[in-house]
Design a protein around this nucleic acid. Structure first.
Length: 273
DNA sequence: AACTATACCTGCAAGC
DNA sequence: TGCTTGCAGGTATAGT
């Protein structure tokens, strides 16, 4: 579900609830998530620990701890986070809960169980899966030069390359489709075939799409919810994603759908070369 | 080494 | 109406 704009929206919404709060208890209701929840470590590290910051890296949220480590959360496809009164009854999809001071509880709800909950006690070492993430698409390390360099000699479709979190961290299927449309590039183009002008158009397109989505609070297609239960409104601005057969907003050609990297791929056959 | 397909899990919509 | 099928924003992995 949540790509960078959704995760960042969640981060901003949770910030005032989490930062400064102390975790008093951890309730693991489902151990089997995307990876097994490290219950022992959570119980050892979290109770009594104060949350000093809430950061995002790619699609991961990091609740930084007073002791130097962090609680790591990833929402998978259908995960949502919210803060509620601690005594509120659980639903069957509430997987993990963190009781906080002031009788509040942070809850991870996830129908499909693709979420990740992890925690590390010290600033070092940073877990391998975080270390290998590529640059932030809105950060200054993400440049046209960088794109050209990592695409160099690559034959795989540019769409697949952009979904690869070690190349750039935070893009998912929605925003990759949208960015390629905005840049006028066909998703199946070999990554290495992009010329310099195309790479810098792509770079700008990625940034613009992400910024617009952030402004709208992300896209709610099926499940995504902000921590207060509300929806992101960027779905209304989608040009190609999920719009098979509908008119391209730029040229009115019908949007076409294909499959790339096992995922639905949407493009305008006229605007994207 | 680079890359793709598959598996993981559940709910829902579309098609019959 | 009810059943079956395919698809869904995620990534790790097994396999080519």
């Amino acid at each position: 579900m949540p790509e960078l704009p959704e995760v960042e929206t969640v981060r901003r919404a949770l910030l005032p609830h989490l930062v400064g709060a102390t975790v008093t208890a951890v309730v693991v209701r489902t151990e089997r998530l995307r990876r097994p929840v490290p219950c022992e470590r959570l119980q050892k590290v979290l109770p009594g620990n104060r949350i000093t910051g809430l950061e995002r890296r790619g699609k991961y949220l990091l609740a930084e701890l007073e002791t130097g480590g962090a609680l790591v959360l990833h929402l998978g496809m259908t995960g949502t986070l919210r803060v509620c009164p601690a005594p509120e009854p659980f639903t069957p999809w509430d997987r993990v809960a963190w009781t906080l001071t002031a009788r509040r509880q942070l809850r991870l709800q996830d129908v499909r169980r693709f979420s990740i909950v992890d925690c590390f006690p010290q600033p070092e070492p940073i877990p391998e899966y975080l270390k290998r993430l590529g640059p932030e698409p809105l950060g200054k390390r993400f440049t046209a030069d960088y794109l050209i360099r990592v695409f160099q000699g690559r034959v795989r479709p540019v769409k697949n390359a952009l979904l690869d979190q070690t190349i750039v961290a935070g893009l998912g299927n929605i925003y990759v489709n949208e960015a390629l449309f905005a840049a006028g590039i066909r998703p199946e183009r070999p990554a290495g075939s992009l010329r310099r002008g195309e790479a810098s158009r792509l770079l700008r397109a990625i940034r613009n799409v992400l910024r617009a989505a952030l402004e709208a609070g992300g896209s709610t297609i099926h499940d995504f919810r902000l921590p207060d239960g509300s929806e992101g409104s960027f779905a209304q601005q989608l040009a190609v994603y999920g719009r098979t057969g509908k008119a391209c907003p730029r040229c009115k050609h019908p949007i076409r759908q294909s499959r790339l990297g096992g995922r639905g791929t949407f493009f305008c056959p006229n605007c994207q070369k």
